[in-house]
Amino acid sequence: MEVRTIKVFTTVDNINLHTQVVDMSMTYGQQFGPTYLDGADVTKIKPHNSHEGKTFYVLPNDDTLRVEAFEYYHTTDPSFLGRYMSALNHTKKWKYPQVNGLTSIKWADNNCYLATALLTLQQIELKFNPPALQDAYYRARAGEAANFCALILAYCNKTVGELGDVRETMSYLFQHANLDSCKRVLNVVCKTCGQQQTTLKGVEAVMYMGTLSYEQFKKGVQIPCTCGKQATKYLVQQESPFVMMSAPPAQYELKHGTFTCASEYTGNYQCGHYKHITSKETLYCIDGALLTKSSEYKGPITDVFYKENSYTTTIK
């Protein structure tokens, strides 16, 4: 009895394709271990004539594949690729409408935090270190965002349907971005203890939790000093293409032309909904596939993004 075979390709990165001759009487799992086709788990399936010449994702289970996976995804987590594939199996079914010149995501599976993050990423200057993220990001900007969303979920250790947080998501993504040249110098002034300067680099240099107003941050924000008295913390120097200011959701007025974009969060910790506000020729609110415009805006804002380049204080 002759062994019926077909020729397929296996890959971990969709760049390096490895030619395989597979036995049609055995499952993919018996031949390769966990195997995925377009995100779908085909591990328990036997090869079919229609699979001839198709590319299958496999887990990096030998040295060659491990090197290829690390170079593309910059992670050695053995569960990463499987999590990416199972997320992709959902995100490829989502709709990605162009809204006001940006790629958004039609609401499904509690994905409003991903839509808000995706919209924000198209408006701030950011370059990702893992080629996987950078490639998928370019495709997302062009309207094909399924891979990018699935990668975000995998890097953030999230599953489809789980509630997510924009600030946490951005923080994970910033860790995989090139923020080497970003720098922030802060000064804390206390009447009792004097003053202390701190220099922050990388992710810490672009994120701040405690106030939404970048102007206020430049002037000074009140913080408790270690001595128990009130101290003032203010920005001395900022070198970065953008800054992200966050605070627990509270009524906040966004003035046209003073910011790049913002995240609105309605609801409580267990259950809520994100919308995205962007400042173009007027203010726009993007909620999944829905767009509304207004000249002014007041609502429960939790993150505001500002364009920056270089700032030095005039406070002496």
Rank of each mutant, 00 (worst) to 15 (best):
V166Y: 05
K93G: 10
Q134D: 09
K229P: 01
N110Y: 04
F56C: 08
F56G: 04
N61W: 14
S213G: 04
A145Q: 04
I124L: 11
G161H: 04
K7R: 08
D38Q: 14
Y306W: 03
K191G: 13
P130Y: 02
S86M: 08
G220H: 02
V160K: 03
V42G: 06
L88D: 04
K298M: 11
N187K: 09
Y252A: 06
G33L: 05
T35A: 06
T76R: 14
T159A: 15
T5I: 09
P78G: 07
T5F: 14
P131E: 05
V3H: 11
V189H: 14
K95H: 15
D109P: 04
P60M: 07
L186C: 15
Q195P: 15
F70K: 14
P47M: 05
L254E: 02
T292V: 10
A115R: 00
F217K: 02
T232F: 13
S246H: 03
P47E: 05
G194P: 08
V206P: 02
L121S: 06
T10W: 08
A289W: 05
Q270H: 14
N61Y: 10
W107E: 03
L126A: 05
K307A: 13
D38E: 14
S79F: 15
Q122A: 03
E125H: 13
I223Y: 14
T260M: 13
M85K: 09
H273S: 00
G267V: 05
Y138M: 12
Y84A: 05
K158V: 02
D135R: 11
F148P: 02
C285V: 11
P78A: 10
D13K: 04
G220M: 02
R141P: 05
L200I: 14
G29L: 08
T282N: 08
T260Y: 06
C271M: 14
Y84H: 05
A136I: 03
T64I: 09
E71N: 15
K219F: 07
L17M: 11
Y138H: 13
I105C: 03
L212K: 04
I315T: 08
L119N: 05
Q134W: 05
T278A: 14
I277G: 00
N178F: 05
A87S: 08
D303Y: 00
P249G: 01
V243G: 01
Q123Y: 03
E68I: 07
Q31D: 07
T302Y: 00
F174M: 07
C182D: 02
S279C: 06
T266L: 07
G299K: 01
P300W: 10
K191S: 14
T292A: 06
P78F: 09
L254C: 01
Y306C: 01
V99N: 06
L173R: 02
V42D: 05
E215G: 06
T35K: 04
T159N: 15
S50T: 14
G272W: 00
P47F: 05
S263D: 06
F305D: 03
P300V: 15
H51G: 05
D303M: 00
Y138V: 13
L283M: 08
D38I: 11
Y137M: 07
T313W: 08
T226H: 15
Y28G: 03
S279N: 12
E144L: 09
E296F: 13
Q222I: 10
Y311I: 12
G299F: 00
K201S: 13
L102P: 03
W107L: 02
L59I: 09
E168I: 13
N16W: 07
Y172K: 14
N178W: 05
K233N: 07
D165A: 05
D13G: 06
S294K: 13
K201D: 08
N49T: 12
L17F: 15
A250D: 09
V236S: 06
C112W: 03
P224Q: 10
V12A: 11
Q98E: 11
T198K: 15
P248W: 09
A132E: 03
S263C: 10
F32C: 10
T116K: 02
D135I: 10
V236Y: 09
Y137N: 05
Y36H: 13
M24V: 14
Y113Q: 01
D287N: 03
G82D: 11
G272D: 00
V189K: 14
L102H: 06
C182E: 02
T226Q: 14
P47W: 04
G210F: 05
P249M: 02
F217E: 02
K93P: 04
A205H: 00
A231K: 07
I301R: 00
T278L: 12
V67G: 10
C285M: 10
M170C: 12
S86R: 13
A87H: 06
T35P: 00
W94D: 05
K219E: 15
Y284A: 09
A247I: 02
I15V: 06
L235C: 06
C227V: 01
V67H: 11
K307H: 15
L133R: 01
T192I: 08
Y284I: 09
Y72I: 08
V22S: 10
T198M: 14
P249W: 01
N178C: 14
Q134S: 14
G267T: 06
T43W: 06
E52K: 10
N110V: 03
K275P: 00
V185T: 12
M24H: 09
K219S: 11
E264F: 01
K307D: 12
D62T: 13
E168C: 07
S294P: 12
A247Y: 03
S50H: 12
S79C: 07
T198I: 14
G164Q: 02
K229E: 12
L65N: 14
H51W: 06
T199L: 11
F305W: 14
P60E: 10
R4F: 11
A262L: 00
K92L: 10
K229G: 15
A250W: 05
V22M: 10
Y274K: 00
T199D: 07
Q196Y: 13
L17C: 04
T103G: 03
L119D: 04
Q270Y: 12
K127L: 10
D63G: 09
A231C: 14
S294Q: 14
L254D: 00
T75K: 08
Q230A: 12
S263A: 14
Y306F: 05
Q270A: 12
I286E: 00
Y57H: 10
V243N: 00
L153F: 07
K229V: 10
D38G: 12
Q238N: 01
V236G: 04
L102M: 15
V206K: 01
L65S: 11
T199R: 10
Q251L: 15
V12E: 10
N147L: 06
N16C: 08
D287M: 02
V236D: 04
L153N: 01
F259E: 00
I124K: 03
T226D: 08
A150S: 05
L254R: 00
T103I: 10
C190N: 00
Q134H: 12
C182V: 06
D303R: 01
T35N: 05
Q237R: 11
Y155W: 02
D77N: 09
N16G: 09
E264R: 00
L37R: 11
S310C: 10
T211V: 13
I152A: 11
T278E: 03
L102W: 07
Y57I: 11
L173K: 03
D287I: 00
L65H: 10
K229N: 13
N61A: 14
F242H: 00
D63V: 09
Y265L: 02
V188W: 07
T266V: 14
L283W: 01
K106A: 06
N147R: 11
E168H: 11
L118C: 04
V21M: 15
S171I: 15
I6C: 15
V206D: 00
V67I: 15
A132Y: 03
A262F: 00
N147F: 07
A108I: 07
Y265V: 04
R167D: 01
F56H: 05
E204T: 07
E204P: 08
V58R: 08
Y208P: 00
I152L: 12
M244V: 07
G101C: 06
K280S: 09
H273E: 00
L119H: 03
V12T: 13
V67Y: 07
L179R: 03
S171M: 15
T198H: 12
I301F: 00
D135T: 10
A205V: 01
L133S: 02
V58K: 10
E296H: 14
G161A: 05
A142G: 13
Y297N: 03
L186A: 07
Q20C: 13
V243H: 02
R83V: 05
V188L: 11
A154T: 07
Y73F: 15
W94P: 04
N178D: 13
K183A: 07
G288N: 04
A154S: 08
F9N: 14
R66V: 12
K201P: 02
K92G: 06
N89W: 10
G82M: 10
S246A: 00
A205G: 04
K93Y: 15
L290S: 14
K191P: 12
P131M: 05
E125L: 04
G164C: 02
D38K: 13
V3G: 14
F56D: 05
T35R: 05
S246T: 02
M85P: 05
G202V: 02
E239H: 11
H51R: 05
F9C: 10
S50K: 13
K106W: 04
